[in-house]
Every structure is written in C-alpha cells, then in structure tokens.
Amino acid sequence: MKQITLQILRTGYGGEDDRSRWERFDVPVPTGRSTVLDALIWARRHTDPTLAFRNACRVGMCGTCGVRVDGRETLACRTYLQPSETSGSDAPEIRIEPLRILPIVQDLITDRAPLHAAIDRLPGVSRDDEPASTGTQATDPDAAARDCILCGLCVSACSVAGLNPGFLGPAALVRASVALDARGGPEAAGVLDAVGGSDGATGCHTLFECTAVCPRGVAPTVAIQRLKRRVVKRQLGRLLRTSSRTGG
C-alpha cells in the first residue's frame, strides 16, 4: 500500500521541557482521494491516541480543521495526499503545524478566541448575525465575503497580523465589510471609525496572503480595499463638514 510520512509539530504537554517538538508518523494511504485529515485520524487511531487536532464536517464547510501543511495554511479535510509506493525513510513527507498567531491549545488545536475577540471589537458587528451563505463564490465579492466560515486560515497567513498583535485581521475586516453592506446610518459610521486606523483596514499591506489561502473563495483583500475606500470617503466627508461649519 502507498505510504506517507507526517511530521507533526506537537505542543502543550507540560513537564520540564515544554517546547514544541516534531514527531514522525508513518501512515498508509489507501486511496488517491485520501486527505491530510484522513491521515491524522489514522495516526491517532493506530499510533498515538493523544495526538490532538480538531475536525467536524470533513467537507470544508465548518473550518475547524485548519492547519499549516508544508508551511501553507489549508483545511486538512480539503488537502489531498500524494503518496508513493516507497516506504520508511524514502516515503514522501509532509510537515503539519498548527495555525500561526492564534494561541496553541495542544498539538494542532488553536484557540479561536482572538479571532472572535477581533470581531467583537467592531461596533455593531456580531459573529452571530452573519447573513445566510449564498453559495456564490469569487465572481461577486459581496456575496463571496458572506461565505466566510471563520476558519482562521487568513489570519494565520497574514504577515501584518503576525507583526502587529493589535491588527484586526482579515476575517474581522471581512465581517466589517459584510456588516456595512447590510447596514447604514450610525452603525456603518461606527464600523468605519473602528476600521480606519493602522490596526484596521489601512494597516493592510495588500499582500493577498489571506486571499491565497481562503478555502471558500472569499477575497479578504478585495473586501479590505473596499473598506479603505469607504473609510476615505467618510473621513473626507467629515473633514469637509467640519471645515464648512468652521467657515460658516
């Protein structure tokens, strides 16, 4: 049977030496459609029952199995293995790590609290009142943005989020963009004031790292660019109103 070697970064076991360490798992790959998640499940079932990772839907809908495979953020359930007939040290190897930036709970499980806290910082934007998914992807940025499943891959991939712990991050900014599409008036003004600084939309360097890894075809970079445009309009409008009041 074809085989693959998983190098998994393991963290969170306490003791005197509480550093992360790489651990090797040799896993058989029965079909050409086997995923990284299948391999992780096999490793936990047959090799080490303490191996910690999170999964739920297995079809890329829930976003809970986000990890980094060979340095790139992906959903384990949507990443197919490419095994070979060789085994042992000659077997192809992949490196699996937890997502960056989010705190590690254990092994591949990360704490999503900072992701949710970033959304909670935005006035009038809630994790619970997202519009229903349209199933539309990529062609319409507004519709695609509503398909965000809060998997956190974009935040892990974002260089700015890695450098600036206060940065709201692509996921929260996509939520802000969706909220602005749905609402107006004082709520919209509050959102725009919140995303206008270097911790918000204008802190984004437009590197497209978030867009490259999004498993749902959402383009956070596009949503953030649209936010920037709205912030500029609001701030210039506010400046003009202030100067006309002062002048009058």
Partner: peptide, 21 residues
Amino acid sequence: MAELSYRKYEAPSGEFWLWFL
C-alpha cells in the same frame, strides 16, 4: 443575536490621515 454596541472601539483618526497623506 448578540447585543450590539455602537461605540466599542474607534481607531485614532491621526493614523488614518498619515496613511491617507
């Protein structure tokens, strides 16, 4: 649905103007 609050966080506007300029 979570209770909405409209004045939770506001970015310092000086940072926006530095970015814009």
